[in-house]
Design a protein around this nucleic acid. Structure first.
Length: 112
DNA sequence: CTCGTGACTCCCG
DNA sequence: TCGGGAGCCACGA
């Protein structure tokens, strides 16, 4: 594709597809919140559905699932359930964590 | 059609 | 600061 992550036409596509597109649009070194992805997909309050999409398609679509964090800039996964891996992946992309505040959204939150 | 299921979020106390 | 509770919504069974 000529573009990069681009001009996806969300019309006619399902919520599921839009979520996929939104997640793929998050660049390296940036993170997005579940609510943000949901909003981008057309349903501001469907953050929980984003989780479902992640579960069902993250691997299949090779999505940067690790760039999705909760609204407070923290990893929602529990230790031993993926928390470690997600944190490692984010750090490798240059995202910084502070022990008590998690990720500084003011600096790393993705903004379309 | 009804129900269960969440890697969520917001609001209170 | 932290925890509990209720709201919310797409989707498969």
């Amino acid at each position: 594709m000529t573009g990069d992550y681009a001009v996806m036409r969300l019309e006619g596509k399902s919520f599921h597809d839009r979520v996929i597109a939104a997640i793929r649009a998050v660049p390296r070194g940036k993170v997005a919140t579940y609510g943000q992805i949901a909003a981008f997909a057309g349903s501001p309050r469907a953050a929980r559905q984003v989780v479902r999409v992640l579960h069902s398609s993250s691997r299949k679509h090779k999505l940067p699932w690790h760039r999705i964090v909760n609204s407070r800039g923290r990893i929602s996964l529990k230790p031993g359930q993926g928390y470690e891996e997600q944190r490692a992946r984010l750090i490798s992309e240059g995202i910084e964590f502070s022990d008590d505040e998690g990720i500084d959204l003011a600096r790393f939150l993705w903004t379309a």
